[in-house]
Amino acid sequence: MNENRAELEPSVERIVQAIDPASSVPVSVQLRGALEFGIASGELIAGQRLPSVRALARRVGMSPVTVSTVYAALQAAGHVEGRAGSGTYVRATGDTDQRRRLAEIDARVAELVALGRAAGLSPAELSLRVSMAQPAPRRPVCLLMVGNFHDATESYAADLRAHLRDGDSIAAATLADVEAGGARGHDLILAPRTLLSRLREVAPDIEAVGVTLIPNEATRVALATLSPDARVVGYSYFPGFVTIMKTGIQRFAPHVSNLTMVVRGDDDEARRIADTEVLIYASGADYLREALAPGQLAFEYRHTPDAQSVRTDVLPAIESCRRTTPRRKDAAV
């Protein structure tokens, strides 16, 4: 009974509907991308129970082994957690980090109390000293925003810069830059959640924090003004992004019924683009505009950091990083 309810929850159903068995992108890749987008966008909320492996496999039309593999990959990336005898749940990342920080504070308070007792201080004297203590000077933090394309990542960094304190800095780099060693000298890495696993492999000594991205205002306005009868093609540069993009289009343009997703390299890529009335292309595919005929509309599907994610994920991580030993600035992107 519970499995059926989870399978039919509107948020899960919307994600499942974005999966296209006829696409050139493997269904397993689509499922993982759709679930990652649902978690990152808040469509799937922290603590929400996902459908069981068998229930989701039946609904999507794939083997339970494949669904289990997708769930395992999401758990390894820190997006979900398995609870013995209960199921798979969306991980409450912010709550987990807060509990970790509070546990660290409790441990340090215990150390301080022990030092006070050893010095012969009464609890009242120790409390007075704590209340009179001056906070340590805030040190600047050097951040690195990482994405797939430099121009888009620069825009993410620019949006985040408005939230930083005086003296803090943020640079932009692609994943390829980081793989080549370009993260050295930075205190903290910020990135879309889909890149976190790889970043933790190539830059294990620098903490990486996930940033939830949503379509920016220009993209949302363009999606909202599409004609319900328009023939729309969504073009994704990466197979792993196709379902994320499709889910976002459906979320902000639910009135559009004729939507086809195309991935770079599809056999009928040119024909589908030529036949469409509206082309929505992912960052990095600007060159497609040159081949469009007069009258065809095109706009970029670009993201921006979600304000709530900045408040709950990014800023607390920056302040936590600020209290640690500065990293040697021996390189920069």
Score class of each variant (00 low, 15 high):
Met1Val: 09
Ser11Phe: 01
Val16His: 07
Ala18His: 02
Ser28Val: 07
Gly33His: 02
Ala34Asp: 02
Phe37His: 12
Ala40Cys: 06
Leu44Val: 05
Ala46Gly: 12
Leu50Trp: 02
Pro51Met: 06
Ala57Phe: 07
Gly61Phe: 01
Ala73Ile: 00
Ala77His: 04
Glu81Asn: 12
Ala84Gly: 06
Gly87Asn: 03
Gln98Ser: 06
Arg117Met: 09
Ala118Asn: 10
Gly120Met: 04
Pro123Arg: 07
Glu125Lys: 14
Ser131Leu: 14
Ala133Ser: 14
Arg138Leu: 12
Cys142Met: 05
Leu143Ile: 05
Leu143His: 06
Leu144Tyr: 09
Phe149Met: 06
Ala152Thr: 08
Leu160Pro: 09
Asp166Met: 04
Ile170Trp: 03
Ala172Gly: 11
Ala176Gln: 12
Arg184Pro: 01
Ala191Arg: 09
Ser197Arg: 12
Glu207Arg: 15
Val209Arg: 06
Ala218Met: 10
Leu223Trp: 03
Val232Lys: 09
Tyr235Leu: 15
Gly240Pro: 01
Gly240Ala: 11
Ile244Thr: 13
Ala253Phe: 02
His255Phe: 04
His255Val: 01
Leu259Asn: 08
Ala270Gly: 05
Tyr281Met: 05
Ala282Cys: 06
Arg289Asn: 12
Ala291Gln: 13
Leu292Ala: 11
Ser309Tyr: 00
Val314Gln: 05
Glu319Thr: 10
Arg323Thr: 12
Arg327Met: 07
